[in-house]
């Protein structure tokens, strides 16, 4: 941790300290990164609950139920949304507002498609007898993918708000809701899905 001190002072000294409005962006980014660190614990706890109960299926359906091709497609969609997100951030850095707005819209759209896919998949599973109360396996599966879906929904809400704001030019860099922070959040939601997809859908150990 010691080298942390040297580099942290850099952005600080760069700005005249007494200027009435010190740069807030590094402060917000630090908070976002530590928040993402704590979210790792949140999803980690749910993934380990799932790993604990992965074989406790009672008389309900087991992991064979998963439709791997369908889920691979939705994983690809989420991956694409990560790309459009980073392109949106790059465009925003280049002050190319029109292009940024396009990519933000695309990310929100892809996010919504992913959510629709999840909801479709859940209704499919419920038809085949895997409900939230069937077995500990079912409860932990739905809780994990459900909370991930909730995070995707919050992301889509933030993205669409930014889309609307950018329409009338009120998308500022130093507000809580800026492209970089929403980007970090969105990519985090994507890498959580990368872990979920591999551990739950593919491994089925």
């Amino acid at each position: 941790m010691t080298d942390v001190t040297a580099s942290v002072d850099a952005p600080h000294d760069g700005v005249a300290h007494d200027a009435d409005h010190h740069d807030v962006r590094p402060i917000r980014k630090a908070a976002m990164w530590v928040f993402l660190g704590s979210e790792c614990m949140f999803f980690g706890a749910m993934i380990s609950t799932f790993l604990l109960y992965r074989n406790t299926t009672g008389d309900g359906p087991t992991a064979e139920l998963f439709n791997v091709p369908f889920t691979s497609a939705s994983s690809f969609i989420l991956l694409m949304s990560s790309l459009t997100m980073v392109l949106a951030h790059a465009a925003f850095e280049r002050k190319d507002m029109r292009q940024a707005r396009v990519w933000i819209g695309a990310t929100a759209l892809l996010g919504s498609v992913f959510l629709a896919g999840q909801i479709f998949e859940f209704t499919e599973f419920v038809h085949e007898g895997l409900t939230f109360t069937t077995s500990p396996f079912a409860s932990s599966f739905y809780m994990l993918t459900g909370f991930h879906g909730a995070h995707v929904l919050v992301g889509v809400l933030m993205l669409s708000t930014m889309y609307v704001l950018s329409l009338n030019g009120r998308l500022y860099e130093d507000r809580g809701l800026n492209v970089e922070l929403v980007g970090l959040y969105w990519h985090f939601v994507d890498i959580v899905w990368i872990v979920i997809f591999t551990v739950i859908y593919l491994m089925q150990v």
């Binding site: 109960y53 406790t56 009672g58 939230f132 109360t133 077995s135 500990p136 409860s139 809780m143």
Partner: peptide, 19 residues
């Protein structure tokens, strides 16, 4: 998990169901 067990019938801690 406790809240879902209590209100939505999930079985995280229900020994009878394997929790």
């Amino acid at each position: 998990q406790m809240f879902f067990d209590r209100n939505f019938g999930s079985t995280f801690y229900l020994a009878a169901a394997g929790g």
